[in-house]
């Protein structure tokens, strides 16, 4: 566990050693605000809740999380530090987890910094804070799932741009897996059972379910499993690609 923690700390600190962290946080906060107020009609709706705020999180994450995850392994491979890291007394899992949790913590920090909007809505009315809390949890879980996908694809290439684009593409499909755009395409070539299975994989349906204020065990398990599976895939890809 100790090496995981050491890697976690090093990674998290490295985000703040470069402008990446500040640029990311500022853009995230600006966009989150802009979307809620202008596109979401935060005031116009006249309701004391944060639904307009959370609705846009998946779309924000779609572009911002891959920007964080693209460097996770691609950079290590490009600079050769992967050889340094993986010849230290650390298992591949510990390294993958340390890096993943650091990136996740970083996004959590950005998410926590949106707290003024929570204060605002409490000042303006009396929202259901349980629902808001659940939505935050759901949002963070979804960000984790995006990151895990990004971790795997970052391991697959030493080119960060490719890692970014692939992650966006796969996350987009996973987001919309429950929607006609994806289901229609799959339905044309696969039986109904497959279509249902894919529909069950949708980030968006599970996120929206949590956003209703009920943290259902199934939704929780879904996100945790998604994260574990993609992180496992990361370890496999890293092991395979090391030789190349």
């Amino acid at each position: 566990m100790k090496p995981t923690l050491t890697i976690f700390k090093r990674e998290l600190r490295s985000y703040f050693a470069t402008p990446v962290a500040y640029v990311f946080i500022v853009i995230f906060l600006l966009l989150a605000g802009a979307f809620s107020f202008y596109l979401g009609g935060f005031y116009e709706r006249g309701q004391a809740d944060l639904q307009p705020f959370f609705t846009f999180h998946p779309w924000l994450y779609l572009f911002l999380v891959p920007a964080v995850s693209m460097r996770l392994w691609a950079e290590e491979r490009k600079s050769g530090t992967i050889e340094l890291l993986l010849t230290l007394p650390v298992t591949l899992w510990q390294a993958v987890l340390g890096k993943f949790f650091a990136a996740w913590a970083f996004i959590a920090i950005a998410l926590v910094l949106t707290f003024p909007i929570w204060l605002t809505v409490n000042y303006l009315g009396s929202p259901d804070n349980g629902v808001i809390f659940a939505s935050y949890v759901g949002s963070l879980l979804m960000a984790g799932a995006f990151l895990a996908v990004g971790s795997c694809l970052s391991a697959a290439t030493r080119n960060q741009v490719i890692a970014f684009i692939l992650t966006v593409a796969i996350c987009f499909v996973l987001l919309l897996a429950g929607y006609p755009l994806v289901l229609g395409a799959i339905g044309a070539i696969a039986p109904q059972g497959v279509v249902d299975a894919v529909a069950g994989l949708s980030f968006l349906t599970h996120f929206e379910a949590i956003g209703k204020g009920v943290i259902d065990l199934r939704d929780l398990v879904y996100f945790v499993l998604t994260i574990v599976v993609w992180l496992y895939a990361s370890t496999v890809v890293i092991d395979m690609k090391k030789a190349a």
């Binding site: 090093r10 490295s14 050693a17 470069t18 600079s79 050769g80 530090t81 050889e83 340094l84 010849t87």
Partner: peptide, 12 residues
């Protein structure tokens, strides 16, 4: 072990 090219984390 010193890998080829002595890689290290540049921002640190």
């Amino acid at each position: 072990y010193l890998p080829e090219g002595a890689p290290s984390y540049g921002e640190m």
